[in-house]
Nucleic acid binder design. Structure first.
Ligand SMILES: [Mn+2]
Ligand SMILES: [Mn+2]
Ligand SMILES: [Zn+2]
Ligand SMILES: [Zn+2]
Lengths: 143, 143
DNA sequence: AACCAACTGAAATTGAGTTTCAAAAACTAG
DNA sequence: CTAGTTTTTGAAACTCAATTTCAGTTGGTT
């Protein structure tokens, strides 16, 4: 799954244009394995591309989400975060409430039990959010 | 666990006062089994108590959270919701993305697996959020 | 090259959440 | 009870991320 390709396809499908800014934002976003907020990605971009505006970064991240190459995350800190989506590698998150560190985890048995729960209530699941909040090993050490 | 008592204790501990408004808000909040946002609870209260202000409702819900008789929920609709906390009855949520219906579920096997995951990363969990988004049975019916 | 729809970025707007402040209410001590 | 002190209240102002607006620019098509 080539994410750049999926994005181009999406632009074509919707009659949208392939601009210099969108390409730069896409590359920067995909190169990182971070969980960027709009503001953070904007700051990173500003170093090399000071003329790209915040609104454009915001709109482009929304486009990424629309065409399925990114997902929105919300860890309750008042900032929406975005991460590149790997369709073959779903994961959930451990979030350190002290230093902000984000650890990714995969647990197929939980995914399976989720499906069972949904079935129990005749509920058809489209997405889910599963996050554990607490202290990472560094932050639980007695300094 | 008498939640009104816990709240009074909290007020005393912090040198706060026992006001008419706080009592009314507490009763209305506990009587409901809803997942109210501040605005929603404010609207409900306004019917019988039109002089209670939004800011007071907001501050009081924060107090409830502080003393542990309520929890904040965020289902990604841009409104923070609050629900009375029953210390002996933890649950997670199914959220219908069409009609907004909220179904509560309990699955001890998932809770157990969560603990295993945390251990795997030497992570000490303080809280977690686990929500499944999709269609409730009514909303997945072909009208 | 010319046209036009889409795009950009600065600035304005929105909306939930939070804070401010002067008047009111709850305590406390006498 | 009364006076004095502290906290609370509610309307309005403020904050801040997210979103929209709009005039000038750019991309893509003929
Ligand atoms: Mn991740
Ligand atoms: Mn609930
Ligand atoms: Zn940490
Ligand atoms: Zn529904």
């Amino acid at each position: 799954m080539n994410r750049a390709l999926v994005f181009n396809q999406h632009l074509r499908n919707k009659g949208l244009k392939n601009t210099r800014q969108r390409l730069i934002i896409l590359e920067t976003f995909l190169d990182s394995s971070f969980h960027y907020s709009t503001e953070e990605l904007y700051q990173v971009l500003r170093k090399d591309h000071p003329r790209i505006g915040y609104a454009t970064v915001h709109r482009t991240l929304k486009l990424f989400t629309e065409c399925g190459i990114a997902v929105e995350l919300n860890f309750g800190d008042g900032q929406t975060r975005f991460e590149p989506l790997y369709s073959d590698h779903h994961h959930d998150h451990l979030v350190c409430t002290r230093c902000g560190k984000i650890i990714e985890f995969v647990e197929p048995r939980i995914e399976q039990l989720q499906r069972e729960v949904a079935e129990r209530y005749d509920f058809s699941v489209e997405s889910h959010r599963h996050e554990l909040y607490g202290r990472c090993i560094k932050c639980s050490q007695p300094s």
